[in-house]
């Protein structure tokens, strides 16, 4: 297919539809509203469901119902809305339901602002809702990558029966870049014999539930779920590296910030400073091994984030003291400029 210019938000919506997601439940919030608008326009034409729910809470619970009923389903929001959805996300994790959740992050806490941020990293990767659970978290850094991540998100959700989050930010949601959609989407829809589609009087009833009053029963279930998480950590880690082999200083950045870090790296290299970049694509599972390996070879790592420093904690754990881990970030909707990052590089040298 020809290349077209598309906003990140629209690309997410189109990619979801192409991944056979026919059900979308959402609530308006800046800066992700184009996703809802796109779905509202397209879903009726393909016999799908678009619903503007009465609240974020209702939307995520509609996702729960539809996911339990066995269909591919998605919701999208931005930071304050994701906080509201946290209850439902926990229930979805607890009931082992597959779904895709989009967070186009804006500055926080509270109502915060509407400009791009990455300050929901903790919420996305460490929980947000209550209980022992994980989300697979994907962080695309270009509009083209959004297409791959969105398809992948539905496949991972189905494969592991768990919620998958795409963590973007206001910048990637709003910007346009040339993209092309593959003519045939390589997506793997699988049978869902556990779904509540009606017994048709031919099988025992299916129950979608996260309530287990007997603590031993609950513990066994959570432990089994964590075995699944272990497998995901072994097999589903995704990242990219650039120039790390000879690097003295390695930047670690994800999403749109990784692009800015790339620009800073080019500026540094032009000045003869050996800078490399590690770009996590999966934030959970976090690319621990490459961080650990690289930390042994470089002089310093710098976590570059649009937050006060959240991913840096995972980098430090992975580096395990093998090299110092510094931080450069802007927050509240401010976006770091490449020159600012270059200054930080020079400061730590």
């Amino acid at each position: 297919m020809d290349k077209v210019l598309m906003k990140g938000n629209e690309a997410i919506a189109e990619a979801a539809i192409r991944a056979n997601c026919k059900h979308f439940f959402g609530y308006p919030i800046t800066p992700q509203s184009e996703i809802s608008a796109y779905m509202a326009k397209k879903m009726p034409k393909i016999g799908g469901t678009f619903m503007q729910a009465e609240s974020e809470v209702a939307a995520i619970n509609m996702v729960y119902g539809a996911a339990g009923a066995g269909v591919r389903v998605m919701t999208s929001s931005s930071s304050p809305g994701i906080s509201l959805k946290a209850e439902g996300i926990s229930y979805i994790a607890g009931a082992d339901l597959p779904c895709v959740i989009i967070n186009i992050v804006r500055g926080g806490p509270g109502l915060g602002g509407i400009q791009p941020a990455q300050s929901d990293y903790f919420q996305a990767t460490k929980g947000g809702g209550h209980g022992d659970y994980r989300l697979i978290v994907l962080a695309p850094s270009s509009i083209q990558e959004i297409v791959d991540c969105t398809t992948n998100a539905f496949d991972l959700a189905d494969k592991y029966r768990m919620p998958v989050m795409i963590l973007g930010d206001g910048m990637i949601g709003q910007m346009m870049e040339p993209i092309s959609f593959p003519d045939n989407v390589d997506t793997k829809e699988i049978e869902k014999p556990w779904a509540t589609t009606g017994t048709q009087m031919k099988r025992k009833k299916n129950v979608v539930n996260s309530l287990y009053i007997d603590p031993k029963e609950l513990e066994d279930l959570v432990v089994a779920r964590y075995k699944k998480y272990d497998e995901i950590e072994k097999t589903e880690v995704k990242f990219e590296t650039e120039n790390i082999d000879d690097a003295d200083i390695v930047l670690v950045a994800y999403g749109t910030t990784a692009r800015i870090a790339t620009a800073a790296m080019r500026m540094a290299r032009a000045e003869g400073i050996k800078v490399g970049l590690i770009r996590p694509i999966t934030l959970w599972p976090f690319p621990k091994d490459i961080i650990a390996e690289t930390a042994k070879k470089c002089k310093c790592m710098i976590s570059v984030e649009m937050s006060m420093g959240q991913m840096i904690e995972d980098i430090k754990i992975a580096a395990n003291g093998a090299c110092p881990v510094e931080f450069y970030g802007r927050t509240g909707g401010m976006v770091p400029a490449p020159a600012e990052i270059l200054n930080k590089i020079k400061e730590v040298m």
Partner: peptide, 18 residues
């Protein structure tokens, strides 16, 4: 941006929003 795309260059388009 579309002209850049036609010329087979790398392009990006970012609006102010809000």
């Amino acid at each position: 941006a579309y002209s850049g795309l036609v010329a087979e260059k790398f392009v990006s388009w970012l609006p102010s929003y809000g």
